[in-house]
Amino acid sequence: MLGTGNPNPSPSQSGCSVAIVVNDTPYVVDFGPGVIRQAAAMSPRYEGKIKGLRVENIKHAFLTHLHSDHTTGYPDLILTPWVMGRDEPLEVYGPEGINDMTTHILEAYNEDIKYRLYGNEPANNQGWRVNSHEIKEEGVIYTDENIKVEAFPVPHGTWPNAWGFRFTTPDKVIVLSGDSAPSEKIVEYATGADILIHEVYYKKGFDVRNEFWRNYHAHNHTSTVELSEIANKAQPKLVALYHILFWGASEEDLMNEISTKYKGKVIVGKDLDVY
């Protein structure tokens, strides 16, 4: 868990991001604020234990949707690993619009890139580049010797393109909801998974919000009670909560709400924890 947060600038939760590391190869899902520093914190350079998260190793990333709390770390994801030595283009897979976002970010940092290429301490001419790929339809979007990645559509308000992902590795199946209201697609792809990483909000906190915000969150996100129903259908070995809207709740409060209907294993995701 690189970041378990949401748009609220919680000091204890970095921006939404998860890293799946297979054979010392990292695959990053979403890039909220702080993504690269969180990865660095888990790497040996900064006394972490996951050598696959040396930032220059970050070469593959997947984006669920274009909300700012999932994307404001994108320039950092492009530039900092390059400055630290990445010598090949970043490969990014995301919804319609990721190509335009990539183009504009590179344009915004054009002067910085030129200075690093042609200044007194020239960098390599590959690591700043990005190959962005727009996800057009449900199904397999990426494979290599470590992993198979499948994308599936999820309902997130009026976003026309919001995706969840299923990662199949040699020994684990990990499914991420992205930001989503309850979805049978998540049930379908998470059935029998080893880990379901799912967003969540505190139901009692939802109940005391005004009508506008109750309507918004009901169409954009998933409550503890709704997540219990999803987990009961899918039966993953572990449910990990992220993108958490606590609304005054404690971790125990969240767990109590979920456990009223779901008896499987659940953890409240924390930044820099490993599952």
Rank of each mutant, 00 (worst) to 15 (best):
E107L: 12
Q13V: 05
A61D: 10
T72P: 05
F62H: 03
S14D: 14
H104A: 11
V55K: 03
P81Q: 06
V83G: 07
Y27S: 13
P89Y: 07
N57E: 00
E56G: 00
L63R: 02
G73I: 05
F62S: 06
V55M: 08
E56Q: 00
G85P: 01
R86W: 01
T71S: 13
L66T: 08
P9S: 01
V83K: 06
M101W: 02
C16K: 08
M84C: 09
L66R: 03
N57P: 01
K51C: 02
T102K: 07
T80M: 06
A61I: 08
G85N: 05
F62R: 04
S68Q: 04
M42Q: 11
E56W: 00
H67E: 13
V55F: 01
A19P: 13
D76R: 03
A39S: 13
G85Y: 05
L66G: 15
D69Q: 05
H67M: 01
T80E: 15
K49F: 13
L106Y: 05
P26D: 08
T80Y: 04
G34A: 06
V21F: 00
P75T: 02
H65W: 05
R37Y: 09
S43L: 09
P33T: 07
N23Q: 06
L66P: 08
L79P: 13
A108H: 07
D100G: 12
T64M: 10
D24P: 03
T103K: 14
F62T: 08
H70Q: 08
L53P: 00
S68G: 06
V35Y: 01
H60E: 10
T102G: 10
S12R: 08
A19F: 02
I36P: 06
P95T: 02
V21P: 06
A19T: 02
I78P: 15
E96P: 14
E88Y: 04
A39F: 04
S12K: 14
T80W: 02
Y46L: 11
I58L: 00
G15N: 06
G15K: 03
R86L: 08
P95N: 02
H104P: 12
A39Y: 04
P9K: 03
V18P: 10
E91K: 15
N57V: 00
L79F: 12
I50L: 14
I98S: 07
H70S: 00
D100M: 12
I36F: 01
N99Q: 09
V18T: 15
R45I: 13
A108P: 15
E96W: 06
G15V: 04
L77S: 13
L90Q: 09
T25R: 09
A40G: 03
E91H: 12
S10P: 07
A40Y: 00
E96N: 11
P9L: 05
R54I: 01
E107Y: 12
E91V: 13
C16E: 14
L77T: 11
A39I: 10
D100Q: 09
G34L: 03
S17V: 09
P89W: 10
G73Q: 06
V35P: 13
Y46H: 11
H60M: 10
I20K: 08
Y93F: 15
V18A: 06
S14M: 10
S10E: 05
V29T: 14
P75S: 03
T64F: 00
G34V: 08
G32F: 07
I58Q: 00
I78E: 13
S12T: 15
I36S: 09
